[in-house]
Design a protein around this nucleic acid. Structure first.
Lengths: 198, 198
DNA sequence: GACAAAAAAGAACGACCGTTCGTAAAGTAA
DNA sequence: TTACTTTACGAACGGTCGTTCTTTTTTGTC
């Protein structure tokens, strides 16, 4: 029931592609209308305001991220295998989810980090959830004994996030072919340094 | 001679403040005219196009970054002391240079990473220079023997850059008070892990 | 103080922005 | 088919965008 739902998710697909390509600021009603073939007013009616469109786009991106990065990693055994799976999926998540360019959530995070409002709130919610999930994955590696009891999951999650950002930077802005390799090496080193003194 | 030069640099000061607060996309002629008290056309005449204004703003930000982060670090002895000085200045560079919000260059890097043109070229130039300078600082620590001969300056610079990005993220978006502490701890760990096996 | 050059202002342009409203088309259920 | 709701369109709005002109004001020099 309701073909409006279908149209809405079709619009959000286009919105993520647009945000990936041109940043969140490029997510305008007119651009998106042209991209979807809808009229401006027809598209507008699905959201009621640009802000609600932005919020819906962030929620859609966050859901797709969870499905692409974290969900499949649950198939790997808890501990280091799962951590490596998360990281590996993360580096390829935009490609795997059909986004040809950068991560929409990363773009939004920089554009809205000093702009209070519901858009920023949703974004913060996503990244806090992400941080918690990542910390939990590290904590499980402590449980399995693969990481020592005094390892700090919060600190490790902080550093792992930094590696992803460094990868985005090297891959997208600098176009360096060795970006993924550098990131993987760094993640391995991070895990090795956190492991018991053998 | 020429008060145009003074006005121009006054405009660029305002441009950096604006880009820090609202991102590079918020660097419009109208906003900047209101901020400086000039008329739109009067301001416009100093640059000839918005693109040239953006380029001038990036160059100004890059120059200020070099003066704030790298220049004073040359006073520290080469090797680890200088590396620590660079990193410490880096975490506070926007505050130290009078920018109340985020790093304009970081904002521009995300907004232009998939938008070819002269603006992106200038940005890439800055970040490649930054990468080289950082690598050189690590290489000097190899020369002094504080880091082993098989340490990889390129890899270390990659990871250090990631720590700064993680700091920006935690401090600006998540508003976490321990962001700087986390970054410093990670940098210490990075240097310690790279140091000779004692 | 006169005069040329530089700097700033003012008005207008076409384009796009988000948004509103009235209307037409498409879908759904009886 | 009828009646009703959902969905989409088209036109228009006030506003801002970058940019182009012309005119006025300010600056620096003899």
């Amino acid at each position: 029931m309701g073909k409006g739902e279908d149209t809405r998710s079709m619009i959000l697909d286009a919105a993520l592609a647009q945000a990936s390509e041109g940043g969140f600021e490029s997510l305008t009603i007119g651009t998106l209308a042209a991209r979807t073939g809808l009229s401006k007013s027809g598209l507008f009616a699905h959201f009621g305001s640009r802000e609600e469109l932005q919020i819906a786009a962030i929620d859609a991106a966050a859901a797709r991220f969870a499905d692409t990065v974290f969900a499949p990693a649950l198939l790997a055994e808890r501990g280091l295998p799962r951590l490596r799976a998360i990281f590996a999926h993360w580096l390829r998540w935009t490609d795997d989810s059909g986004l040809a360019y950068g991560c929409p959530l990363h773009a939004a995070a920089i554009e809205f980090d000093d702009r209070p409002g519901p858009v920023r709130d949703h974004l913060v919610g996503h990244y806090e959830r992400l941080q918690r999930n990542l910390e939990r994955a590290f904590a499980l590696a402590v449980d399995t004994g693969e990481l020592p009891a005094d390892a700090d999951p919060g600190q490790l999650a902080f550093e792992a996030l930094g590696l992803v950002f460094a990868y985005y930077h090297a891959a997208r802005l600098l176009r360096r072919a060795d970006a993924a390799e550098r990131a993987r090496a760094a993640f391995d080193r991070l895990l090795a340094a956190a492991a018991p003194a053998a």
